[in-house]
Design a protein around this nucleic acid. Structure first.
Lengths: 128, 128
DNA sequence: CTGCATCCACATCGATACTG
DNA sequence: CAGTATCGATGTGGATGCAG
């Protein structure tokens, strides 16, 4: 306990974006719009094909799905299994490291849920 | 345990960005570039003035600091205390709700730290 | 079926200068 | 001291069409 956002940098004067804060780094990996939804569906369905994901992650385009999957794979959060058949068949699944992120998101989930309630009570509607 | 990224929507067919996923919502509040660093410094120094923050959060501009502080205050994560003196004096501090987020970030911290190690071992340098 | 390429809209962020 | 205002750069996400 009690470490929180401690930065490892030995140079306290530098911009933290030039050091390597693990929290910032984590968010740079999964903080974009579609990464978490994709991981969420892969958590529910251990093994999912490209078009299944596209159907389940409502509103995502081919471009963003492809891009997100590729980046998640490069960071070792998901596993891509390609079958050499025609027509092509590709299955995606979470790696252990990908699954390891979910409990943390669980905590974020409950915090966010409280926030939503609070903001509703305050009648804050952000419709410009 | 075990709820993870469960969405509350009663309409499973809709785009999740039209429902209210608490995780997405949480990231919309603290996911931007400077919010977490600011909160981190407010956690270390219970009460901090505007220009102190500007000095400590290396690289931030007046505009981004002002904007971030205002949004954090609107969401009830920080408290703004203004003294009616000349020259102006304003102190910022974390609210209980703001502090409640830190343990979650702690978990993200350790996950991100492991990720950094893994990426280093893979010799992945993203310098185009 | 599983993507990639192109072009474009929009939001975020930064640099600089200025104010009560 | 504690901000605002303006403009411009950059990046992220979207629409559409095409390819292996």
């Amino acid at each position: 306990m009690g470490n929180y956002l401690k930065y490892d940098s030995e140079y306290p004067e530098e911009n933290i974006y030039e050091s390597e804060c693990p929290v910032i780094y984590a968010l740079s990996i999964v903080g974009q719009k579609w990464k978490l939804p994709i991981m969420w569906y892969l958590f529910k369905n251990e093994c999912t094909r490209y078009n299944d994901l596209k159907r389940q992650v409502k509103g995502i385009t081919n471009m963003m799905l492809t891009k997100s999957l590729k980046e998640l794979e490069e960071h070792g959060l998901i596993y891509r299994k390609q079958y050499e058949v025609i027509p092509p068949k590709v299955e995606y699944s979470l790696t252990e490291r990908g699954k390891a992120l979910l409990p943390t998101l669980d905590a974020l989930y409950y915090w966010g849920k409280d926030q939503i309630e609070i903001d509703k009570l305050k009648n804050k509607n952000y419709d410009i």
